[in-house]
Design a protein around this nucleic acid. Structure first.
Lengths: 347, 347
DNA sequence: TCTCACTGAGAAAACCTTTTCCCAAACCGC
DNA sequence: GCGGTTTGGGAAAAGGTTTTCTCAGTGAGA
């Protein structure tokens, strides 16, 4: 009999505009206009309605608004980066740029599963997202999803865009330049480059920039050592660089922070001082790695959060009907200096 | 004059049920029923309508459906784990459990900002989410958001639940048992424990379990070494354990994988063999760390994806009106065996 | 007093779908 | 041929909001 002591909580029904209008003794039309600052009415009426709405805790139903406006203030974020190394900062940037505009973000992890991707995209479209941001774990690959000819605009961030679409990526060449030029400024003369597999486009982009900077500075170019994205490869690369009888580098620019970690550990094991004997720079600025190396690692940061923010804003302007030139836009990296490069050897 | 060559693409207007009905020569009511398998009509009519819908590429507008059903098939996922170490696997699990039920997930990063949290929660409620999952980077802390007395059900995962709410966490005591019992089975007799700061509840939970297992096995309990969650602390702990004249451990159970990494590195630097002289087990099973240690690290996995899945399903049943007992539910961990423990010394 | 312009506010359509009736026609048994 | 049932399908309300159109009243100028 005592039914109000049930364990399942009962959730209050949201108050509607109709109820506000009734409570204020006006029509829904007037109530709507009062709350939106539209229409004509006495300041008195408007204030009274506002006051009632406030008191009743009225919050407009976005579903109804969206239906009418044909705009849901919602976007989808597609990623196949389950691990989140790159997606998460990017996502944070996207969300950050959009939340202030009242736009919420659906997160869709499509793994590398075509069926799952299709499923998510259709769910997005059915839910009437205003647009879609596609991002991935690898800049030179397409997401395993077909996003062409969708009913909504699409922006690609940190993944390969479809033809005719808008893509935002980090300026890897610029990032590599930052690192190598930093070494040059510090007076390092024999700068090596240890990077990931050449099947990654960024590996070649960065290697090219590395060569270019060395040539600009009249320094000898040693062929980049390409391997895996792992610590183990960093170890092995050091063995190759320091094992032979050739001239040894006084600086190593690494393709990512894990390689750099391996390099630093291997150098220490050989009794080579970092940064005194050899400077090391990584890529990605993955703090958890960069701050755990001994000494802490100077690294190139791709500014993924900014990339995400830019992607969010680009999508928003597309949704707003602004035409935008298709193509790939590159955003600058920045060098985060810690202690693995030191002062110039001579000074 | 040639206006069809504009650069801004024009997006096709979605086709509505009304249009399908018109094309099929029936009323919208009939069309709706035909597509949903409701109502009565000749199989012929139903098939014809289906065919027309298919041909026109009709997809029902979820906004309209949601408005009518008072259910948006949408949930919000709140987190303050910007870094994503714990959130991301959890998120993947949530999304995984829900996508098959047609439910999409809003991702909301609230940082540690109360204002931002409030903003996101209100946006969610306005968008009429069916429920909210709260998750964090720390099990023993509340999210900086007030989720009590919301109009929708809330499930907490990997974060401290409000009183009377449902929370899912990993069974840290069980996880610690797995590790220490594994050592015991392997015949290790002097098992040490190196963990994070005692301000973390899990540190104490795991330490208690560690002590309990040792006592159950009639082994000497050495006081856990508590410090930071870092590699550096792992190093220092090894210095303490192996620097003095006391008996040295033959196994070290670490509070997370980073500490374990530091421990293993420090042991190698001292010439202590892993796993031959000392076995090491970590916690978190963070693959990128666990697989980079030499040898690869045996570690306790908290099954965060499962946790996420469970949280998603729990929320779903709550949304469906099923009453559920409030309280904290603990989900089992599992031990991922790699090579840092080895075979029993005697066998 | 008669228009004119303006003011304040309401009625109703629109957004798109689902669902509950309701109705006409056909069919049944008698 | 007649009451009753089944069949196939439509009309309309509902969900919550926005917006356009309309309208009654008011004060002013002629």
């Amino acid at each position: 009999m005592v039914s109000d002591a049930e364990s399942a909580p009962v959730f209050a029904k949201p108050v509607t505009l109709r109820e506000v209008a009734a409570a204020a003794g006006v029509s829904v039309a007037t109530a709507s206009k009062a709350l939106n600052g539209q229409g004509r009415m006495t300041a008195d009426t408007r204030e009274r309605i506002r006051e009632v709405a406030q008191r009743l805790g009225f919050r407009p139903n976005h579903l109804a608004q969206s239906l009418l406006r044909r705009r849901s203030f919602t976007v989808g974020l597609l990623t196949n980066d389950t691990y989140g190394r790159f997606s998460l900062p990017l996502m944070a940037g996207v969300s950050d740029a959009l939340v202030d505009n009242g736009v919420s973000v659906f997160l869709c992890n499509v793994e590398d599963d075509l069926r799952l991707g299709q499923l998510h995209v259709e769910a997005m479209l059915d839910k009437r997202v205003d647009g879609i941001i596609a991002t991935g774990k690898r800049v030179d690959r397409h997401l395993p999803v077909d996003l062409s000819n969708l009913r909504v605009p699409v922006v690609y961030a940190f993944t390969q865009p479809d033809a005719g679409a808008i893509g935002l990526v980090s300026d890897d060449a610029g990032g590599a330049r930052l690192a190598v030029e930093h070494f040059c400024r510090l007076g390092r003369r024999r700068i090596a480059h240890v990077s990931g597999p050449s099947s990654f486009e960024v590996v070649n982009t960065r290697a090219d920039a590395y060569r270019a900077v060395l040539e600009e500075n009249n320094l000898a170019v040693s062929e980049p050592l390409l391997g895996a994205w792992s610590e183990a490869w960093g170890h092995e690369a050091v063995a190759r660089l320091f094992g032979g009888r050739g001239e040894r580098p006084d600086a190593i620019f690494c393709g990512n922070d894990q390689i750099a970690r391996g390099v630093i550990d291997a150098l220490r094991e050989r009794g080579v001082g970092v940064p005194d004997d050899v400077g090391v720079i990584g890529f990605d600025n993955w703090e958890i790695v960069a701050e755990a190396t001994r000494p802490p690692l100077t690294s190139v940061d791709m500014n993924l959060a900014s990339l995400g923010r830019e992607a969010g804003l680009a999508l928003l302007s597309l949704v707003g009907g602004q035409p935008a030139a298709p193509g790939i836009r590159k955003l600058p990296c920045r060098l985060v200096v810690r202690q693995s490069c030191g002062r110039p050897p001579g000074g």
